Computed example of a mutant assay.
Amino acid sequence: MSWASFPKDSTISDMPSDTAESGISPPYVVQLVKQVNYGPLESKRYFVCRQTNQGNEQFVEVTEQWLIDGNFEKVNAYKNFKCAVHNKFFEVNVYQKNAINAHHWRANIARPAGEIDL
Rank of each mutant, 00 (worst) to 15 (best):
Y38V: 06
I12V: 13
G23N: 05
S43L: 06
K34N: 09
V60D: 14
C83H: 04
K8T: 06
N80F: 13
D18N: 14
F90S: 03
A102P: 06
E91H: 06
Y95V: 09
A20G: 09
F59S: 12
R50I: 00
P112G: 01
N87T: 08
V62K: 01
F89E: 11
N53W: 01
V36S: 07
I116T: 12
H86G: 11
T52F: 08
H104C: 09
Y28I: 09
N101P: 00
T19D: 14
N71Q: 15
F59N: 06
L67C: 00
G23M: 02
F89Q: 10
I116M: 09
N98H: 06
V62G: 05
Q35F: 03
K79A: 15
W3K: 01
A99C: 12
I68S: 10
R50F: 02
L41S: 11
G23K: 02
H103P: 05
D9Y: 13
A77Y: 03
F47W: 04
Q54W: 01
W105E: 14
H86A: 14
V85R: 03
M15E: 11
E42I: 14
N101A: 08
E42R: 13
M1R: 06
D14E: 15
Y46W: 04
R106C: 05
R111P: 01
K34G: 12
I109P: 13
Q65M: 02
E91K: 03
V85E: 14
P27C: 01
K8H: 11
Q51D: 12
A113I: 11
G70F: 06
V48H: 00
V33H: 15
I68T: 01
S2G: 04
V94K: 04
V92Y: 07
Y78L: 09
Q58C: 05
H86R: 12
N37V: 03
F47Y: 12
Q96E: 15
